[in-house]
Design a protein around this nucleic acid. Structure first.
Length: 555
RNA sequence: GCGCCUGUAGCUCAGUGGAUAGAGCGUCUGCCUCCGGAGCAGAAGGUCGGGGGUUCGAGUCCCUUCAGGCGCACCA
């Protein structure tokens, strides 16, 4: 019995109470679906609901009286073993072991699809994250968004949304010329100009550019600058893509800011917003009246010198997303960018969209990693690729994905290297590899999900141990966890769930043997427990996949 | 000054308005003749920053206050 089915049974119980006059409640006061949850305390049964507490007042009765009436009606439901009224009027529901145990087979049958749902079906979402300048390597500041953004994309898709993960390449503007100038200076063996990029990686880029363009030093200044800039850009962007690839992060679209300028999209964006009546000219510049919406001051789009601002490109980019058919636009930004929220929302509003539904900005606090070596090649920062080389992609991704984005983080690098409970990723991965070890041993011992003659050995009533009841309840939760993680845009819910599930699995493993002792025969209990083992294995694998973390068979 | 985020166990952090506030680490005590001890069982550890309020019920929602982080460009 799933929570949805139980919820339906509760609604039916409410409806029948109203129908026979026991419950004086208008039809529209009956919730379409009654919320059921896993109680904290195991003694409180498999499921609990507070519906009687919520409805008693409206019905002019006491919570306990209503709860007791509902309990009597619910007890008749097949699969329900017991219903108790507790405390002020909670309903505590216990399921038959057989009804609960059926889930083990259902999970194995569903396979990788278990946990996927349609909570976000029909939603088309553009998810933008990282979007770092291509003027240097990715560093720790980008790493949190890489881990979180990629996991979020996977989770949103699992919940039924159509998602395009997008990287906005800030390849226009003055910083690109400073980048090119820095490379050129290094190539010529001179000092990097004031305000340029000074990291060792610039010298490395210069060497590579020179290898490809030995004529660089013979070119006139403006031509040399362009070659240095363009070749450096190409090499640096390739490195960023390669590092993200090694981190398991995939983008569907790499969007170049330049194309907005070159195609005239920026100018058109200004004109479109002008037609909407939100653009005005003052002091020789062109302004967007963002104060009409939620911003605290108006923003310049075209400077007095005729150059468009970064903000104008942002507006054009927003319109591009809109025109490309994305009603939903999610931006993952660092806390140091939270000042942009209002102006981004103002762009949406000025474009005639609803800033509440068409745009969503997730702000994340910064991360610090204690004990990490600063990068010599990139200067006084921690590079993503060094972090991955040092700690490993799985551990880095997992430890970033298991915290909400708005939690300021101080990770200890040494802890992430430990293959112990200091490091939850190993706890979860260990549980998965343990399920795989059980499978291997089961094969050796002649234990299979079917009997030797191929007949069905699955008997869910045999999954009656306390730890099995807990484990099954936890497996039941997975689809709801995925849906909640998608709706709240919180991948950490999946990680926390996996840690709980891994713990429940280890407890079960310590109490219930899947394999017979050497002197025992194989029974249906062993075969049925193998179903449960494999169901846990599947859910651990599905959940780790949502986080972009591997599910090893051996460790 | 204005705005956003965060204050929960010694440490790092969970906690869709529900029951006795949780996990890991650290400290202490047990468990390997049999499926992986990278595990399990147990103990100790809390004015949920402070103060008001909303209600059957507040760590959670509202107000206020204190502390920390970040941001307030014709930069990108």
């Amino acid at each position: 019995m799933t929570p949805d089915e139980l919820s339906g049974a509760l609604s039916a119980a409410l409806a029948s109470a109203v129908a026979d006059g026991t419950l004086a409640l208008p039809a529209d006061a009956i919730p379409a679906s009654v919320h059921v949850e896993r109680p904290r305390q195991r003694e409180h049964g498999d499921w609990a609901t507070n519906v009687a507490l919520q409805l008693a007042k409206k019905a002019g009765t006491t919570p306990r009286a209503l709860a007791e009436d509902l309990a009597r009606r619910l007890e008749a439901t097949p699969g329900v073993k017991a219903v108790d009224v507790a405390g002020p009027g909670f309903l505590n529901i216990t399921l038959d072991a057989a009804a609960a145990g059926e889930l083990a087979r259902a999970v194995v049958t569903a396979g990788p699809a278990y946990g996927r749902g349609d909570a976000l079906a029909g939603q088309v979402i553009n998810l933008e994250y990282i979007s770092a300048n291509p003027t240097g390597p990715l560093h720790i500041g980008h790493t949190r968004w890489a881990a979180l953004g990629d996991s979020l994309a996977r989770i949103l898709r699992a919940a039924g949304a159509e998602v395009a993960a997008e990287y906005y390449i800030n390849d226009a503007g003055a910083q690109m010329d400073r980048f090119g100038g820095s490379i050129l200076a290094r190539a010529r063996g001179t000092e990097v100009p004031e305000g340029g990029y000074k990291g060792q990686y610039v010298a490395e880029l210069a060497t590579k550019v020179l290898a490809e363009r030995p004529d660089l030093l013979d070119l006139p200044d403006d031509e040399a600058l362009e070659v240095a800039r363009e070749e450096g850009y190409r090499l640096q962007l390739a490195e960023i893509r390669q590092v993200l690839e090694s981190f398991g992060v995939h983008f569907d679209v790499w969007f170049s800011e330049r194309t907005l300028h070159e195609s005239g999209a920026v100018g058109k964006a200004v004109e479109r917003l002008r037609e909407q009546g939100h653009v005005y000219d003052q002091d020789g510049a062109v302004w967007l009246r963002t104060t009409d919406f939620t911003d605290d001051k108006d923003r310049v789009m075209i400077r007095a010198n005729g150059e468009p601002t970064y903000f104008a490109a942002d507006a054009a980019y927003y319109l591009s997303k809109k025109d490309r058919g994305f009603p939903g636009k999610i931006y993952l930004l660092g806390a140091d960018h939270h000042g942009y929220i209002n102006r981004l929302k103002a762009i949406a509003a000025a474009a005639g969209d609803d800033p509440e539904t068409n745009i969503e900005v997730l702000i994340g606090q910064l991360v610090n990693v204690g004990g990490a070596k600063l990068s010599k090649r990139a200067g006084n920062i921690i590079e993503l690729r060094d972090l991955v080389d040092w700690i490993g992609a799985d551990a880095v991704r997992y430890s970033l994905a298991r915290f909400p984005a708005d939690t300021p983080l101080e990770l200890q690098g040494e802890d992430l290297l430990k293959q112990t409970n200091d490091n939850p990723v190993f706890y979860v991965q260990y549980a998965h590899s343990r399920t795989a070890a059980v499978d291997r041993n089961a094969a050796d011992r002649g234990v299979a999900r079917l009997r030797e003659d191929g007949s069905d050995a699955f008997d869910p009533s045999l999954l009656s141990h306390e730890t099995e009841s807990v484990l099954l309840g936890q497996l039941t939760e997975f689809p709801r966890i995925v849906a909640a993680a998608a709706q709240h845009r919180e991948p950490h819910r999946v990680a926390r769930y996996l840690e709980q599930l891994a713990g429940d699995y280890h407890k079960w493993y310590a109490e219930c043997r899947v394999l017979p002792y050497p002197d025992e025969d194989v029974t249906d209990t062993h075969r049925t427990r193998l179903w449960l083992n494999d169901a846990v294995r599947q859910v651990l694998a599905n959940g780790l996949d949502l986080l972009g973390v591997s599910a090893p068979e051996r460790m």
